[in-house]
Every structure is written in structure tokens, then in C-alpha cells.
């Protein structure tokens, strides 16, 4: 199972990577939407974890491209520090399947990731 973390903050990427790798996922990273799009074109991922605010291409734009170009329709979680409802709607409209507010607790993240990638529970 392969997960792409799209976030401009290296600390957040590392945090997510730590959690996911501990759970046995293969993790790749992208620092902005543009890089993520390139990676999505070359590889297949089982899940995208996407930040909103990023330079060059933000999370919304990335998701819209991901969905519209029919590049990948794998589940995507949008993560942000904003809890505002408006952002949720924007995220879902763009193509996110789940909206989570940072920081995500490791257990919570693992539960959701496991469900979203369709991995059988133990």
C-alpha cells in the first residue's frame, strides 16, 4: 500500500511518514501540488494525504487536476489546520474524500487510512 503525502511543511511530512511507515505503508512525499501531480502521473498510489496551503500549486488545485485529468481516483484526505466548515465544502468540491484537522492523532490517522485504502482489519 502506497501513500503520497503532499505538504510543504517538512515537519508535517515527517510526522505523517513516521506514523504511516510504522503501520507498514510505503510513503512518498511531494512538497507542493505540482510535484504531487507529477508523482501521481508516474506512480499509482492508494491514498493521498494533501495539505491545502502550499506554494506553486495548492491542495485544491491539485485535487481538481487529479480528478479531472482522470489521473487517479484513489481516496484523498485533505488535511488542514482550518476547522472552518467553508473549507470542508471547498475541499470536498475539489475532490477530497475526507477532511481532517491537523494535527491528526496517530491512532486516528491509522484507523482512517486503513479504512480508506481498503485494508482488512486484523
Amino acid at each position: 500500500m502506497k501513500v503520497l503525502i503532499v505538504d510543504d511543511a517538512s515537519t508535517v511530512r515527517m510526522y505523517h511518514r513516521n506514523v504511516l511507515e510504522a503501520a507498514g505503508y510505503v510513503v512518498d512525499e511531494a512538497v507542493n501540488g505540482l510535484e504531487a501531480l507529477e508523482k501521481a502521473l508516474e506512480n499509482t498510489f492508494d491514498l493521498y494525504i494533501v495539505d491545502i496551503n502550499m506554494p506553486k500549486m495548492d491542495g485544491y488545485e491539485f485535487l481538481m487536476q487529479l480528478r479531472s485529468e482522470d489521473i487517479d481516483q484513489a481516496p484523498a484526505i485533505m488535511v488542514s489546520t482550518e476547522a472552518a466548515e467553508l473549507d470542508h465544502t471547498k475541499a470536498f468540491t475539489a475532490g477530497a474524500n475526507l477532511y481532517m484537522v491537523k494535527p491528526i492523532k496517530p491512532l486516528q490517522m491509522m484507523t482512517y487510512v486503513r479504512l480508506l485504502v481498503g485494508e482488512e482489519s486484523v
Binding site: 481538481m64 487536476q65 487529479l66 480528478r67 479531472s68 485529468e69 482522470d70 481516483q73 484513489a74 481516496p75 484523498a76 465544502t89 470536498f92 468540491t93 475539489a94 475532490g95 474524500n97 475526507l98 486503513r114 479504512l115 480508506l116 485504502v117 481498503g118 485494508e119 482488512e120 482489519s121
Partner: peptide, 25 residues
């Protein structure tokens, strides 16, 4: 959500994927 956007089709498919995977999981 609004289904008229260009990427609605992809979005719908992603939604279906999520539902199938989650349920199966």
C-alpha cells in the same frame, strides 16, 4: 455537491472507491 464541474466524474469515481474500500476493509 455540484456535479457540473469538469472533474465531477473523477470525484464520483473516487467516492465510489472510498465506499467500496472502506466497506470491504
Amino acid at each position: 455537491l455540484d456535479p457540473t464541474v469538469d472533474w465531477a466524474k473523477g470525484r464520483l469515481r473516487a467516492t465510489c472507491n472510498v465506499l467500496i474500500k472502506t466497506t470491504a476493509s
